[in-house]
Measured scan of single mutants.
Amino acid sequence: SELMNSSKLIRMLEEDGWRLVRVTGSAHHFKHPKKPGLVTVPHPKKDLPIGTVKSIQKSAGL
């Protein structure tokens, strides 16, 4: 199965306009000026399962 580095996923979010608002432990929480909701990324993780990545991307509207 495909894995993604959390840094790469965070870069994709930031390029889309998401900004880090809070860190709780290894959970990084992002908000967007125009899009609704809060997106949480486990970080640092070298090997996020593709299912997790897809669900984060979906929440972020990517």
Rank of each mutant, 00 (worst) to 15 (best):
S55G: 11
I56H: 01
A60I: 06
V41G: 00
E15W: 07
K46V: 10
I56E: 02
H32L: 01
P36W: 07
G51P: 06
P36Y: 08
H28D: 01
L62C: 05
L3D: 09
E14W: 10
T52Q: 10
G51R: 13
N5E: 14
D16A: 06
I10W: 02
S59G: 07
P33Q: 09
K34V: 14
P42A: 05
R11T: 13
L38K: 08
S6M: 02
S59N: 13
G51T: 12
K34H: 13
P49L: 06
L9P: 00
K31D: 12
K31T: 15
E15K: 09
V23Y: 07
A27M: 12
L20A: 08
D16R: 04
K54G: 05
H32V: 00
V21Y: 13
E15A: 09
S6K: 02
H32W: 00
K35R: 05
R19I: 13
K54L: 09
H28A: 15
L38A: 07
A60L: 05
S26Y: 10
K8L: 12
L48K: 01
E2Y: 08
T40Y: 14
G61L: 05
I50C: 07
G61V: 03
I50G: 07
V23R: 11
W18I: 00
S1T: 11
S26A: 10
L9K: 01
L9V: 10
V21F: 12
Q57T: 13
I10Q: 02
K35N: 03
D16S: 06
L38Q: 08
G37Y: 04
S7P: 04
Q57S: 07
P44H: 04
G61Q: 08
I10Y: 02
L9W: 03
E15S: 09
K31R: 13
V53G: 02
L62V: 06
K58H: 13
L48H: 01
A60S: 04
H28V: 13
K54V: 10
K54Y: 06
V23T: 07
G51H: 12
E15N: 11
H29W: 13
L13C: 02
N5M: 15
V53D: 02
D47H: 14
K58V: 13
F30Y: 08
E2A: 08
L48R: 01
K35W: 02
L48N: 01
L9C: 05
T52M: 14
K34Y: 14
D47K: 12
L13Y: 00
S7V: 08
D16T: 04
W18T: 00
I50S: 12
L20F: 04
H32I: 00
I50A: 12
G51S: 14
P36T: 09
K54H: 09
K45H: 07
S7A: 12
L62A: 03
G25D: 14
N5Y: 06
S55H: 15
G37Q: 06
R19P: 00
K45Q: 10
G61A: 06
I50T: 10
L3K: 14
H29M: 14
E2W: 07
A27R: 10
P49A: 11
W18E: 00
S59T: 11
H28C: 05
L13H: 00
M4D: 05
S26V: 12
H32A: 00
M4W: 15
G17T: 01
L20G: 03
I50Q: 13
R22T: 10
T40I: 10
P36S: 12
L62F: 05
S6N: 02
E14Q: 10
E2T: 10
E14V: 10
G37I: 03
A27I: 10
L3Y: 13
V39M: 04
L20C: 14
R22L: 12
M12L: 10
D47E: 14
L48T: 02
T40R: 13
G25P: 15
G51N: 13
R19T: 14
V41K: 01
P49F: 05
K45D: 07
L3G: 14
I10K: 02
N5T: 14
D47W: 15
E2N: 12
K31S: 12
T52V: 15
W18C: 00
I50H: 13
H29P: 01
T52R: 06
H28E: 04
T52H: 06
I56N: 01
L13R: 00
G25E: 15
K58M: 10
P33A: 11
G17V: 00
K45I: 11
L13A: 01
F30T: 00
G37N: 09
A60T: 03
H29F: 12
S55N: 12
K8W: 14
D16Y: 05
G51D: 15
A27Q: 15
E14F: 07
S1G: 13
N5R: 06
P44R: 03
P42W: 03
G51F: 08
F30H: 01
W18F: 03
S6F: 03
V41S: 00
Q57A: 08
S59Y: 07
E2L: 09
L20N: 05
G17L: 03
S55V: 07
K31C: 10
E2V: 08
G25T: 13
L9N: 01
V41H: 01
I10S: 02
V41D: 00
H29E: 14
P42K: 04
V39Q: 03
E2R: 04
L20I: 08
L3V: 12
K46S: 15
G25I: 13
D47N: 14
K46R: 11
P44D: 03
R11P: 02
N5H: 11
P33T: 07
S55M: 11
I56D: 02
K58A: 14
L38V: 14
S26L: 13
R22Q: 11
F30G: 00
K46F: 13
H29Y: 10
G61N: 06
T40A: 11
Q57D: 02
L20Y: 03
L3C: 09
S1R: 04
P36C: 08
D47G: 08
K31F: 09
S59M: 14
R11E: 12
L13P: 00
S26C: 09
V41C: 05
V53P: 01
M12R: 07
G37V: 03
K35G: 03
H32D: 00
S55T: 10
A27H: 15
T52I: 12
E2P: 12
K58W: 07
K46N: 15
S1K: 06
I10D: 01
S55E: 15
G61Y: 04
S59I: 14
P36K: 11
Q57Y: 15
M4G: 08
V53M: 04
K34L: 11
H32N: 05
P42T: 05
K46C: 08
P49N: 08
K46H: 14
T40V: 12
V21P: 00
S26N: 13
P33E: 07
R19N: 10
E2M: 11
P49S: 15
H28L: 05
E15F: 08
